[in-house]
Design a protein around this nucleic acid. Structure first.
Lengths: 210, 210
DNA sequence: AAAAAACCTGACCAAAACGTCAATTTTTGA
DNA sequence: TCAAAAATTGACGTTTTGGTCAGGTTTTTT
């Protein structure tokens, strides 16, 4: 006699797609698109492979869904950069938020890093444009601050990329960071220290005038 | 009748291994270890697959050879950081050298980024130790500069990681940079501008005191 | 309660991938 | 010059992989 399970409160499709995507982003983030086997995704999500195919037609479909869905998180942190805040305060907040994102969303961060490393093959031109627009808005804020004499005349795009790189680093290259600091894992203190270092350096520079 | 080719001046083994490794690093850097097919390496190096196997027993062997060989380039740029130079001059030189390396050795840079992104599975503990030692030496230089009152008291490890990230970025995430700058490719000017931005910001900060 | 819709999955397939090998050609060294 | 060593490669065998499918079960709808 077969017992029927109690009807799941959550929609079945939603629940299973979530399982699959959660497992997938982890493996994609570690092995990239070409290196990922769907059987592995199936195992990791606790579903038989054929069931994965019931929800997603191809490997590409899974990957594209993730790209689309994770792109949203991309701009969240940038919201701190607004013209009516003081640069010191706004930039500190951005760096903090971005580091926090790197710490708490290592996998998603790496997923994107992987995609970029491969040249953004799966980014639609629409998505690229979105990234551009988001960045341009913030670049304009920087330009405004420069005009107001609150910041030195740095090239805003490269300035942003520097901040992005410095913070993204802690998600993508945790291994390098751990090796450098001679630890097996990064703790919250390490992230705090990273924050201090980046903020202090970027805002006020590292040199002491003679 | 079959003509025998003139005897190659270069040793055959050396020449073919070089061909294979050159093709391999390119593909590995784009697709990572798991994503790379040996047939593809064979095609790219213009050798039949069986011939690739004649020189390298497994895919791992190729990959490990590359890790070992490319690790050497890792520390080159750090040589600029020496205690008897002035920090401004030394750090500028380092940033310049690292950016130049990113520009001219995109593929090798990405190869390592890929490896790190995957957690450095193929790095032996000896190689990790090497990276640590190299870094520690330079950290000591920074500490010396701080002691001499030439630099503000930043955490040297994180300070280095920041520089590393900011410069490495231009090799690993060329795509992001290109999208941001709305170009299809980065030119030398872009790298120069990156240099200016990073140096100015890191050394003197981005803020103007009121 | 019964039909319809949604969900599940073991078994299967064709293509691709890794790796082997025996037979041949080329190069080297005495 | 000629035998041994090194290099080359087409063809093959095995395993893995992406993807399919038919037939079943469960859930939803009416």
């Amino acid at each position: 006699m077969v017992m029927s399970k109690p009807p799941s409160d959550a929609r079945i499709r939603a629940r299973n797609e979530a399982k699959i995507l959660k497992a997938a982003v982890k493996i994609f983030s570690l092995k990239g698109f070409d290196g990922t086997r769907i059987a592995e995704i199936a195992d990791a999500s606790g579903l038989p492979k054929a069931n994965v195919y019931y929800y997603f037609a191809t490997k590409e479909a899974i990957y594209e869904t993730l790209v689309e869905r994770l792109l949203t998180g991309w701009d969240k942190t940038l919201e701190h950069i607004v013209a009516d805040r003081e640069p010191r305060e706004a930039l500190s907040a951005y760096i903090h938020a971005k580091l926090e994102y790197s710490r708490r969303h290592v996998i998603e961060s790496r997923f994107f890093a992987n995609e970029m490393l491969r040249g953004g093959r799966f980014l639609s031109s629409g998505q690229k444009k979105h990234m551009q627009d988001i960045t341009r808005e913030r670049v304009e804020v920087i330009e405004e601050w420069i005009r107001q004499g609150k910041m030195v005349a740095v090239e805003p795009n490269h300035f942003f990329m520097m901040l992005w790189a410095a913070t993204q680093f802690y998600a993508d290259f945790t291994t390098v960071a751990a090796v450098t600091l001679n630890k097996s894992q990064l703790t919250r203190d390490d992230y705090d220290c990273a924050y201090e270092t980046i903020v202090k350096t970027v805002l006020d520079g590292c040199l002491i005038a003679e």
